[in-house]
Design a protein around this nucleic acid. Structure first.
Lengths: 236, 236
DNA sequence: ACCTGAACACCGTTCAAGT
DNA sequence: ACCTGAACACCGTTCAAGT
């Protein structure tokens, strides 16, 4: 600690503390806080404390909280997409892209929800996903004037599923720490629906209730992707 | 005003002021505030002022802001779904349901975004949409063990599209007040992407840029629904 | 029972003051 | 140039006090 202070009071030219602030370090720390505590955990005061600085310092690197969340979300998406092998059959590449995003949103549940926010701001998250999916559509035989609609449909589905099921993943994780499991959480949800929803008005949902606790998110997610892929090859 | 005060100071038994608080009146006022000013406009202080009461009074009718937003969102969805004719062919009924929700999210842009939040809380919005769509799947020939996945896929797509394009609708509306139009707003968005995104890394998105300013959200939305319907009839 | 509004414990953001 | 942290203008929510 003394040495740290000494370093600051007699710094050589262009020398930088190893823990100097940077947009990257701020983003990485923000992601860690979000992963541990969810959306509500990320405040400038907590972030500054973790970075051992003042809250105002962060504003030298990001314009505001919206930008911070955008950067964090886009970093998570970019990392996920970078793992996808591109030398595959187009339908397999789209599946692999979808899986990579699913896994990213499961590991960072806040990101699935923040993506919808990010899309409202500058749309870079959408651009990333759209590019990864859309670049395969030529090889799938989709005519160029239909590619915008198809890429938009796939990305809307992925975004919608991610933001919807982030709740399951996150609550499942939190509850797991307290000795419960995902099945028990979903059982509680189904029980709540059973009590709140009139079976005469919601017959379809009531038929589903038994399947909710044990259903597999990942399997359900890919079923939707395959539904869309089937529609693409049928229509185009 | 004097008469109003007099009424309060000498109320007869069980008599109620015509403007007495109720969950319905609070919800309706909240929806109006959200429609005019968007998510950030709704605060308990502003809502209380509009209702000519204290902020604390609202807590007699809703538990907290989350519940208020859930109730408002579910009211918008319920209203939209109530307009859909049920005596149609199943694919037409699904299309009509999708259109009704699209129109609702265009009229209440905050609701498309809040729906993803609502789904994370108690899922009643999802249940409503799932019921409206899922009840048509028998007639479409979808086997019962596939209906959960299909209903989930459709509702994820609708939710994702709504939350994504709420931005367009809302910003389009705000900008329209200032003398701009939607095309100009989307042109600006496309220009920003052109500058920010490397064409070597984002070739597909760059091909799309010309089409963004004039594309029709509603047409794009229904194209995705038809893609999924085609996939459903092909796979089932 | 229902309502009021000040008080509490927070936020994001700004900015004068430090090094 | 970069950092600090008090100050500002808000929030959601609570609760003693009123009617």
């Amino acid at each position: 600690m003394c040495q740290y202070v000494n370093m600051k009071s007699s710094p050589s030219l262009h020398e930088r503390r190893s823990d100097a602030l940077s947009k990257e370090r701020i983003t990485a720390t923000a992601i860690t806080i979000l992963d541990i505590g969810g959306d509500s955990a990320l405040t400038f005061r907590r972030l500054a404390k973790q970075l051992q600085t003042g809250a105002g310092a962060i504003y030298h690197y990001v314009a505001n909280k919206d930008e911070l969340l955008s950067v964090a979300t886009n970093a998570v998406i970019a990392e996920a997409l970078s793992t996808v092998a591109t030398n595959q059959e187009p339908d397999k590449a789209i599946e692999a892209t979808a899986f990579a995003l699913f896994d990213a949103f499961e590991a960072h549940p806040w990101a699935g929800y923040e993506l919808t926010q990010e899309n409202r701001r500058n749309g870079l998250g959408f651009a990333q996903i759209c590019e990864a999916l859309g670049s395969k559509l030529d090889a799938l035989g989709v005519p160029s004037d239909a590619q915008f609609n198809v890429a938009s449909a796939l990305s809307s589905y992925i975004t919608g599923f991610a933001s919807q099921n982030a709740a399951n993943a996150r609550l499942g994780k939190i509850i797991a720490q307290e000795g419960f499991d995902r099945t028990m959480y979903l059982t509680k949800l189904a029980t709540r629906w059973k009590q709140q929803l009139d079976p005469a008005v919601y017959p379809f949902v009531h038929q589903l209730l038994d399947k909710i606790p044990t259903h597999d998110d990942r399997e359900q997610f890919i079923a939707g992707i395959n539904l869309m892929l089937a529609g693409i090859t049928k229509l185009h």
